[in-house]
Design a protein around this nucleic acid. Structure first.
Lengths: 134, 134
DNA sequence: GTTTTTGCAAAATGTTTGCATTGTA
DNA sequence: TACAATGCAAACATTTTGCAAAAAC
C-alpha cells in the first residue's frame, strides 16, 4: 500500500524535519500553518499517523503527555533532558545478554527495542540547578 | 516529606500489586472498588501520583494510551507483547559503550535509563498469527 | 471516475483540578 | 488542631472520528 501524497502530508513531513529536534503535534501544526494556512488540526494528526505507519517518521511517547515525532526513521535511542525536556538522539544499543536471557527464560520472543535515557543536556548540565525538582 | 497513609492509598497500593502484571489506572480503580466501594476515580489517580512520587510504584508510559503501573519499584526493563499488550519484566541493562560515547559527544549527562522491548510473549508466540497486523 | 483525504466540529480518552467536607497525624 | 486527602463534578489536553466536500491517482 502506497502513501498518497497530498500537499498537506508533504508539508507535515517537511515540518517534522524543519522544526528541529523532536516536535510535538502542536508544534508541527503551528509550523505547517505557515505554508498551509487552512490546514485542520485533525489533518495534521491524520497525516502524522499515515507517515508513522509508512515509517517515514517515528512517533515517540515519552514521559510527557504529548507524543513527539522524529524525522529520522532509522533505529536509534533517545536521551531526555530533565531540565528542559529536550530530546537528544543516541546511538542504538543491542539487547544486553542479561536482558536476552531474562526474556528467553519467560519464552518471550524479542523483536525490537527502544531505550530512553534520562539526564541533563549540555546546556542544563552547566546551569547547576536545572532539573532539580525537590 | 512522608506519605500520609489513608485507607484509600493503602488499598490502591495493594491493588497495584494484586492486579497482577502491570495494571492501568482503570484496572486499579475497578480492583480498589471491591474493598473501597465509595472511592472516587480522582482519588485513585491522586493516590497513584503520590505513590509514584514516593517511589512505591513505577509509572510506565508505553505505546498504548493509558499509563500502566508497576508494583516493583526497583530498576528493571519491560517487554511489551505486540499480540496481547501484556508486559513482561526484564532484567535491567546498563548503557552500551556506543550509547555512552554518543551521549558524551553531545555533552549529555546520563542519569538513568529504561528500555522497552517489543515482541511476542510465550502465549502469543505459539499462536502463529498473533501480532501481525498487515 | 473511484477512492482517499481534507476540513470542521464534536466525541472519546486519559488525567488533573477546584472546592467543600472529612480524616489523619 | 492543622494540614492534607477525599469525593464529586467539571475542566483539561491530546488524539480520534463522522460526514460532506474536495482532491489525488
Amino acid at each position: 500500500m502506497f502513501l498518497r501524497m497530498t500537499p498537506q502530508r508533504r508539508a507535515v513531513l517537511e515540518a517534522v524535519a524543519s522544526c528541529g529536534g523532536h516536535p510535538t503535534a502542536a508544534q508541527i501544526y503551528t509550523r505547517v500553518r505557515v505554508t498551509q494556512p487552512g490546514i485542520a488540526y485533525a489533518t495534521v494528526y491524520n497525516a502524522l499517523r499515515a507517515l508513522v505507519e509508512h515509517r517515514a517518521v517515528l512517533q515517540l511517547k515519552f514521559g510527557d503527555t504529548a507524543s513527539r515525532y522524529d524525522p529520522r526513521p532509522e533505529r536509534h535511542d533517545h536521551a531526555l533532558c530533565l531540565g528542559c525536556q529536550s530530546l537528544v538522539d543516541v546511538a542504538p544499543s543491542r539487547p544486553s545478554r542479561r536482558a536476552l536471557r531474562s526474556a528467553a527464560a519467560k519464552g518471550f520472543q524479542l523483536n525490537g527495542q527502544h531505550t530512553q535515557f534520562f539526564g541533563l543536556c549540555a546546556d542544563c548540565a552547566t546551569r547547576p540547578d536545572a532539573g532539580e525538582k525537590d
